[in-house]
Simulated assay, not measured.
Amino acid sequence: MYGNNPYGQAGWPNAANRGMGGPPPSIFGALPYYTPPTRANTLIFQFTSFNPDVMNCTVLGPKAQPYYRIVTDAPTPGFTVFQNGTGKNFAFIEWRSHPQVEIRGAVHKQRAGDLLPLSASRSLRRMQIGERQYEWIPNEQYISLCTAGSGAREVLARISRSQTCVNLEMTSQAISLGLLDIAVVVTVLLQSGRSID
């Protein structure tokens, strides 16, 4: 009876597994220590070094490597320019009463509201890239990029915001579908605080 402690087998601290060095004690009393769930095959891109906001920042990728630079109004007033890690411009937003967006090789120049039209219920924004349809859906603290269609939605990416940065989590599937550059531009559109319709 003493050698068959179910709590000891589960890794909870007790006399039977004293040397296991597991997680710190639970803040919930007798319950095991909470570890937030992680998403497998996810890369995080962090919009940081705001100057003063997400429309002027650096985007760091895995291992804190700079992946993108986002510059607004310099040297061209009324524009946000997106540069890749080699300093090459790949996208822009022209801020007017109805902002225009272009992403080279993916999205021809068009109104941002046409790229991301609101659904009839105004609960999500749709997006079509090539033949594929997607949806940007706000839920809790995230704005999630999901597959659209009759089947179950699959989350491909999600945006979250803190006081000091904006995070874009991308699945490896989303990156292989060529959605990284597009998601970076959409993140700025949705986090800019400006009307895009």
Rank of each mutant, 00 (worst) to 15 (best):
A16G: 10
I70W: 04
G29F: 11
T38E: 13
F82V: 09
T42E: 15
F50L: 10
N84F: 03
P24Q: 10
N84G: 10
D73Q: 02
F45L: 02
P77A: 02
Y67A: 12
S26Q: 00
G19H: 13
P32I: 02
Y33D: 14
G85Q: 09
I44T: 12
T48Q: 07
G19T: 08
Y7N: 13
P36R: 08
F28A: 07
C57Q: 07
F82C: 05
G21Y: 00
P52M: 12
V71G: 04
P13M: 07
G78S: 07
L60Y: 04
R39G: 03
N51G: 09
N14L: 07
G85L: 07
A30K: 12
R39T: 05
T72F: 03
Y67F: 14
V54Q: 02
P24D: 06
T35A: 15
P24K: 06
N41E: 09
G29D: 13
S49M: 12
P36F: 01
T35C: 12
T76E: 11
P25Q: 08
D73C: 04
N5A: 11
Y68D: 06
G85T: 04
P6F: 03
V81N: 13
I70L: 06
G11C: 02
G19W: 03
Q65T: 08
P36S: 04
G29K: 01
M20P: 03
T35L: 14
N5G: 04
S49Y: 13
Y68F: 15
